[in-house]
């Protein structure tokens, strides 16, 4: 019989963390909230505007467009990266010397700075000199990401898949490694097919890590900025202008601080909401 000790002193141990979180998250967030309800014409001069910026943002077709593109992008890359990551993890060796080789190879894309990833793909996909761009054109595809929205989308998606599938692979692999051999032996003895093994043993045991992978990939892709910015700059036209790119354009390009701040807050709340919905939905029935 174990009894938990009730001890209020433990809260002091959490205090440093609270301070750090306050400094790097809550205070900046409050600053943004502050901006989002005010207007300014020159530094230091502010007028209270209430919900004006929010109304403006929510009714703007530009915001709707960026939001739509954002959801489409996120949906596409999640639909590709999660299953692909699981497949790669399943194909990786479980034992032996190749394990570490595979793991290092998988980790490589994650170690490259994000702007470098953008720059790499920028050159890689150039239709005149880039291996990918030139190759596709040579094969007869009309491909030019600087001019055709479809090419640009394909390239952005491909780049994200290349960059981030590894994360899903590593997480899924960790989940798979935690399954004791006895489960596989028992399944064999029960005459289970490879699919049944996946469906009834591997998938349930990977569930928790896959939820984490899904959340991480959702948040990251929803806030994607650096790579598409370096690759396409949001173009051609506005075709790859995702929320974060639009936000930066508004804040820095057009100096619409109030609009940008309101967008930021909406953006933040959306991310939070979607994550919460995801998490509760996937965890439902876990402990019942």
């Amino acid at each position: 019989m174990t009894t938990k000790t009730v001890n209020q002193k433990a809260w002091f141990l959490v205090l440093p963390v609270l301070l750090i979180v306050a400094l790097n998250a809550i205070i900046p967030l409050m600053t943004v909230v502050n901006y989002s309800v005010q207007d300014t014409f020159s530094p230091g001069v502010f007028f209270f505007e209430g919900t004006k910026w929010y109304k403006e943002v929510l009714s703007s077709p530009r915001f709707h467009g960026a939001l739509g593109r954002q959801f489409l992008f996120t949906a596409i890359i999640l639909a590709i990266e999660i299953p692909l990551g699981v497949l790669v993890a399943l194909a990786m060796p479980r034992k032996g010397p190749w394990v570490s080789v595979c793991l290092v190879l998988m980790a490589l894309p994650l170690l490259i700075p994000w702007n470098v990833v953008g720059a790499m793909w920028n050159i890689f996909a150039l239709p005149d000199i880039g291996l990918l761009g030139y190759g596709l054109n040579w094969l007869g595809f009309d491909y030019n990401y600087t001019q055709q929205p479809v090419s640009a989308w394909m390239t952005v998606v491909l780049m994200d898949v290349w960059h981030w599938t590894s994360l899903v692979v590593l997480l899924a692999y960790a989940g798979l490694s935690s399954i004791p051999d006895a489960y596989y032996q028992a399944a064999k003895i029960d005459g289970a097919s490879a699919f049944a093994v996946f469906r009834y043993i591997q998938l349930p045991k990977m569930k928790r890590v896959l939820i984490i992978a899904l959340l991480l990939r959702f948040m990251d892709s929803f806030m994607v900025y650096t790579e598409p910015f370096v690759l396409t700059g949001g173009g051609p036209g506005n075709s790859t202008t995702f929320l974060s790119i639009d936000l930066v354009k508004a804040a820095i390009g057009e100096f619409n601080l109030g609009i940008a701040a309101a967008m930021s807050i909406l953006y933040f709340l959306m991310t939070l909401l979607v994550c919460w919905v995801f998490y509760t939905a996937m965890m439902r029935g876990e402990d019942s």
Binding site: A182, Y183, K188, I189, D190, G191, A192, A196, I201, P204
Partner: peptide, 30 residues
């Protein structure tokens, strides 16, 4: 599986997501 044996391991091996009855059906359904 070719030997047609059954084995009970040191730690219980069950299919978590299935019901008790489905667990027992599994080897037969396969």
């Amino acid at each position: 599986e070719e030997r047609n044996i059954a084995q009970v391991f040191q730690f219980p091996v069950i299919y978590d997501t299935m019901t008790v009855a489905q667990n027992l059906e599994f080897p037969l359904a396969n």
